[in-house]
Nucleic acid binder design. Structure first.
Lengths: 145, 145
DNA sequence: GCTGTTATGTTATAACGTAACAAGATGGGA
DNA sequence: TCCCATCTTGTTACGTTATAACATAACAGC
């Protein structure tokens, strides 16, 4: 997929960040590059998500650049481990969940389009007290565990 | 747990609804009963979530009353199947996932507090064309599959 | 040049969530 | 009884997240 200029900018901002960024954080990061209004960011995010290059972390209302290559389709499960204190996030590979999800959701769903799994807790660093900052939304948070 | 008046109202509104309600939808539903401002609803929701009586469906930004009894702790996994067209939601039991989650998230997390799994797709009814309404956020949507 | 499509851009507003403060209600003690 | 702590209720105002609606540019193909 060919990325447009704006999509490149947004993707690059997310790749530079050490933790998930809200759409407005992306906007702020890109103001110096001429990005001025929310829809620009949201449109780019939408395309990038469609291409599997970016995921939305639902429980944070924030976005991360993806490191893996996902197949699209039912086994395109997006799974994240999230430290609720310092904001660190790790993307997990959980392809083995695909089949059991199909069985479990069969009561309601005939087709699966998208699955997401988010596990939150405390990272090793925060448990040891090594992650200085409390997650302040603005703070640069994200420790290396 | 003893519920306060407001908590009762909120829980009852969610139980009556056939699909997840946003906090503001709850607010609207309770205006006739004297509930006038968002914090009242959010506070009640927070307590109800803490008690496991209500869950937040992250990918919808909405809340549902819980039908099961959950143990609290790591195996308190909240799993939902969601029809992206008509808005129907089914809460799944996925206790077997608990252990594998622990393993998968171990790289980052030392402790798990909360896990959520959301699977979206099309329900049997929507695939057959039996669910009339497209999910319009205001529409009463939710088919019986 | 014309046309259809995609990308870009703006303004304004909807929808979701919380901070900060004030005021009643309750339930002990001293 | 009075004082104090605590909990619940309530308000206003604000911050954050997301989208609607519209206008314009850029470009490919005829």
């Amino acid at each position: 997929m060919e990325l447009t200029t704006q999509q490149e900018k947004v993707l690059s901002a997310l790749r530079k960040a050490k933790k998930p960024l809200s759409a407005y954080a992306v906007l702020d990061a890109l103001r110096t590059q001429g990005v001025r209004s929310p829809p620009i960011v949201y449109r780019a995010l939408e395309k990038l998500q469609g291409a599997g290059l970016v995921h939305r972390v639902e429980s944070l209302g924030a976005f991360v650049a993806c490191r893996h290559t996902h197949g699209k389709g039912p086994d395109g499960i997006h799974a994240f481990a999230i430290c609720s204190q310092c904001g660190a996030v790790e993307e997990l590979c959980a392809p083995s969940l695909a089949k059991s999800l199909g069985r479990k959701s069969g009561g309601l769903l005939a087709e699966i389009n998208h699955s997401m799994l988010e596990i939150s807790g405390l990272c090793h660093g925060c448990v040891r007290g090594a992650c200085a900052k409390k997650n302040t939304k603005k703070g640069s948070g994200a420790c290396s565990q």
